[in-house]
Design a protein around this nucleic acid. Sequence first.
DNA 1: CGCATTTCCTGGTAGC
DNA 2: TGCTACCAGGAAATGC
Length: 287
Amino acid sequence: MRRELEPWLTGRVVRSAELVDAVPGPKYARLARAVGQRVAAVGRHGKFLLLPLEAPETGGGAARDELVIHLGMTGVVSAEPPVSHLRVVIRFDGPEPQTLYFRDVRRFGRVLIAPEGVYDGLPTLQQAGPDALAPAFTPEGFARALAHSGVAIKTALMSQRPVAGVGNIYADEALWRIGVHPERPARLLRRGQVEALHGAIVDVLMASLEAQGTTLHDYRTVNGAVGAYLERLAVYGRTGRPCPRCGAAIARIVVGARGTHLCPVCQPRPRSRRGSRAAPRRAGGRS
DNA sequence: CGCATTTCCTGGTAGC
DNA sequence: TGCTACCAGGAAATGC
């Protein structure tokens, strides 16, 4: 999405920004402040799209605003008006197309203005680790970030703190690639496993980018294309179907209240006495 | 602070 | 056909 928006929007001035069937609030904070400002760049950190804005009248030095876009679950950005669930319309100057539409069925997404680098209402972005595809994401830093966390490795990845940009689909895919169970405590991964996970995250994201992402239901590229990575998924959404590597049936468990898919043969459960649920410190019912 | 749980939100689907 | 109940999940809020 960033790559598609960059040549389209860079250098343009925002002419209007309006909410459509959306309640003004934290998810759309200060959106109107974008009007009259120029898009200086189209950046990204993890799943957050970041467009620094320049106000024409202020010279250098002044703190810049940033247009922040997050798709949430069902957000879609396009230059064509969506069939339904339109939430935000932003018009720019310059050649056609001039209008950016933000569609969001479940309203988990956000389109707002924040002071550049100051994300008070966005703690996940504020505390995010290095972007998964940036040079700052290194095996060494990754290892340090995981070293003291007792939570499940999948939960750690989902928090965006050790690394930014890995969501439910790619967390499952990356852990399958390295043969580590999603519930293994993050700090118990061996050094080699951390390095392998680092590589697997980069590889799976790059592969998905090449396929224009994963479309389960709503996701579309800015140009309206569906992401083709769905058919390359090894475990996500493939419960009961054969593991591409060993043929065993893919299992589905819940980790951190999120559906989690794994191969029980390639990713054996850590040899811990604790069950997967919150309370059952009972030894029975191994499976 | 670390971690677990709950909430937000709507379309799709299972079950009756 | 129409109704209810429940599920999906990224991030924030809330509760220890």
